[in-house]
Nucleic acid binder design. Sequence first.
DNA 1: TTTAGCACTCAAATCAATAGAGTGCTAAGC
DNA 2: GCTTAGCACTCTATTGATTTGAGTGCTAAA
Lengths: 341, 341
Amino acid sequence: MTELTPRQQRILGLVVQMYIDTAAPVGSKALMEASDLGVSSATIRNEMAVLEELGYLTHPHTSAGRVPTDKGYRYFVERLIDNVELPPAEKNTIRHQFHQARMEMSQWMQLAAAVLARVSRSASLVTAPRLERPRLRHLELISTQSHLVLMIVVFQGGSVRQRMLSLQEPISQPELSQIAARFNEQAVGMDAEAIRQRFADLAGFEGEVMHILLDLMTDAGQTSSSEVYRDGLTEVLQEPEFNRSSDMNALVNVLEQPGFLNDVLSAPVGTVQVIIGGEGRWRELSACSVVIARYGAEGFATGALGVLGPTRMPYGRAIGAVRYVADIMSDLVNELYGESF
Amino acid sequence: MTELTPRQQRILGLVVQMYIDTAAPVGSKALMEASDLGVSSATIRNEMAVLEELGYLTHPHTSAGRVPTDKGYRYFVERLIDNVELPPAEKNTIRHQFHQARMEMSQWMQLAAAVLARVSRSASLVTAPRLERPRLRHLELISTQSHLVLMIVVFQGGSVRQRMLSLQEPISQPELSQIAARFNEQAVGMDAEAIRQRFADLAGFEGEVMHILLDLMTDAGQTSSSEVYRDGLTEVLQEPEFNRSSDMNALVNVLEQPGFLNDVLSAPVGTVQVIIGGEGRWRELSACSVVIARYGAEGFATGALGVLGPTRMPYGRAIGAVRYVADIMSDLVNELYGESF
DNA sequence: TTTAGCACTCAAATCAATAGAGTGCTAAGC
DNA sequence: GCTTAGCACTCTATTGATTTGAGTGCTAAA
């Protein structure tokens, strides 16, 4: 692939910019008037023809202006975007909001989703950080009524799961506390595998408690769909490219598919990925772009967060926002999980 | 208001039915062909004119068929719907799904939202049951790292709240456990007022714990927006009457407004309310109807659940579904909160 | 009271003509 | 060898006129 001349780059960038702004195909004359390239529309036309030849632009029809292809967007994102940092003022506002919030994952996630949606003017999603190797911190058994017991498990790092158990035979609260105390004495700090081995011979109610504990540990190690925060979905649905027939649901579902998230989650924390038009692998995303990043503490607890919009999305803002919010979230996770790893 | 003749009732019912089915204004001839009224289209026209005179129908324009007014829908819902029970087969499926689920409020709510959306083919929302007078069941303080303490509070009935506290001075886990034990010995079974009085003189960290406990109790007594489950929103957004300009967000927000929910929640558990076209009080709902009911244990913990769709919604199914799901949820809440009140 | 008949209305579909934005190409200019 | 002015050509979008058809309201007869 031969290198584009500086002027071609400039024109490609302008076309992408203008198209993102106006949502209308951009013609040579309009581009000339809107920029200070110092060349005539005819020259621009020639260059555009070359860019089309090379696959960066297309034509909806003969007498329409140019529209970027996915390849064009890709080039734009990789080579032509200069400054993806958010302006300092905006950064401050965002950071301030996070410091105002309570020290709770769910609050942060919700806030992150809200900030991403607002700043990038796209739909956003934030998945909860998944514990890569949950370790028991505390277990509590509370009798709520004769045949019902509430089991609460705290993992190292502070995430909490609960489950209601129903008993055949009622068990008194002191007995329950004793069982819980045994786990707390013997199993704190252990991961699922260690617990499975150590307590392999437990039977009856205690065995059941252990199995549910293991189950909750598995659960904490997976991204459940109930722990995905979204924002801005209905707004982005109003964008002209999402005509009512294209079902947004299908689209959001892709983002929850294991294949998709796993693929993205294989990237290291700290990098921002841009997936344009589904990259041919996700049909439902053919008209969309996704800007996504992992956040959290690598090897311990990581989640994903990103925005979803039409391919015609403001990439600069989106990338800046995703990067900045991911950084903040990583800091927060580290702060929260601090010395426990 | 003079009574409608049986034939007028029949015609009104048919118009509403057909309009709900087809979304197109229904004309006299079409109605004649689609029914077995045994009268000519001219007669139907005359009757329709009368119904329009009385305010049950309108005309989009001179040469279009008739469309029900809100008053027409109201009459339909109150007088003309005969059987709002779901078919037994459907009931069984639903009941089965609930019994398959785990004993957890959040699971039930999610399931309820899903069932409502599917059965009524509208958007659904389910709010968490609000404890009307939360009483402490258990309090736990867990040190997660030197300066961070996780506080977990269980209320009678089994709902759980948590909060992370940051300390000026580190406090050891045994000390924390001791403080928690004091609350558990002295405050279990108390409501917020009792706790406030009993522990009015607590200071320092223990005072802080008490204040957060009270805060969490207040919190448990309010419907927070994070505890609202929704489903089917994007589907219903595709309905022809919701053109892209009308913002669904604004619409959903109304349902979360205190005014709206309070109004609805003032009705007793067990009744299903139908709000057609916002009843003039909620402008954003002018094109919508809401079918909503309270569920739970009256005087102890109640929530609301319902569906939201265009005024042209299948009222029969919606009312049947809301009533049935509300009944199931009430049963479940009673089962869960059982003997504790 | 019902109904057949008819004139009338109005939105939606169809069609033709036009305007305009934009392209591609060619030939002249720097 | 680029660049640019000029021009023919293409295709969409808009506009306006016309037609179509569903549906109404009214009247007069059954």
